[in-house]
Structures are given as structure tokens and as C-alpha cells.
Amino acid sequence: MIAADEVRIATGRVVSLAVARGEGLVLAGASGAGKSLLLRRLADLDPGAGRLTLDGRDCAAISAPDYRRRVALVPAEPAFWRPSLRDHAPDADFEAVGLDGARPAAPVTSLSSGERMRGAIALAVARNPQVLLLDEPTGPLDPRATGVIEALLLRLTAAGTAVILTSHDPEQPRRLGFRLLSLP
């Protein structure tokens, strides 16, 4: 589904990878290895050498806004441009990420880092992407919330979404049953 052929990221590292429909991949590696930069490059948010393809089509042949609707990236520090999560996407399923009650309608400035991350994941999923990229999605979460997000990722891959995430949790690839790619 998504493939990176010798893409160069800002650290100078050159990476190739391919993730099929319904497949999950965990990117691991020390801080500074370039995991976040690789996700930005896969989302076509940074320029660089190499070739990105989605369903066999060169990403340059797809308009950038359309490409990013199909390949959604949730950054490690999500940001919002409307007052509340609900204002961004009234139909988003916030309960699926464990945000229920009034939290989605609360000002985003009042949310914890974990709530912001879960809100950003719900908003990305609401766009129904073919590929979901997540940068440390469970980093700011407690074990229970981590379980909720992992269950959601498994449902997404079962439904055909390709998922690539970065993680410092060595057990996470095994829990999810995702392939592991370590950046040296």
C-alpha cells in the first residue's frame, strides 16, 4: 500500500520500507535515530530525495492535500486550530479512544497531553485514511488508555488500514502483533 524507496531524511539516513493494506509496523530506535522524521517524510511533510508511493502511484502524482487525507500523521505533540476537539470534527468517534462525556467539547487548552493525543488520533481516524502514521501514540498514556488505543489500532488493521507507529515500548510490537523495524 505505502512504500518508501530509498527516502533520505534530515538526519542523512536513507530508508526503504513497504507496508501492505491491513499491516502494522512499529518503528523503534534510540532518540535521534530519525523515527519522527521518517514519519514526516512518509506524510510528505518534509522534502527529500527518494520515492514515496501509495497503492503503486508516485505520491507526486497525487495532490498533496489529497495524499495527506489518505496518509494521516498524528504527531507526538498534536496541535489544534479550533476551540475544542468536537469543533474539528463533530462526527468523530471520541469514545473509541476512551474520551467520553464532555471532554471532546472542552477547550483543547484544558486537556491533558494524553487527552490531546487521544483526541488527535480520533480526528485522524475520522478522516478514514488508508495509512495511519502515529508518532509515540501511547507515550503520554496510562496503561488503561494504552490498551484502548492498541485495541483501536488492531480494529483498524483488521479493517484494512495500514498502521505505522513509533514506540519506545519494547513489548508493544509483540502485544500488537506488528512487524518491527529498528532504526540503528
Binding site: 495527506r68 500523521l73 496541535a79 478522516r127
Partner: peptide, 10 residues
Amino acid sequence: RIVEARLLAG
């Protein structure tokens, strides 16, 4: 981060 969040939203 806000500008890039909007770009990422398409």
C-alpha cells in the same frame, strides 16, 4: 505546529 496540523488534516 498548528499550521502543520492543518496541512496534515488535508
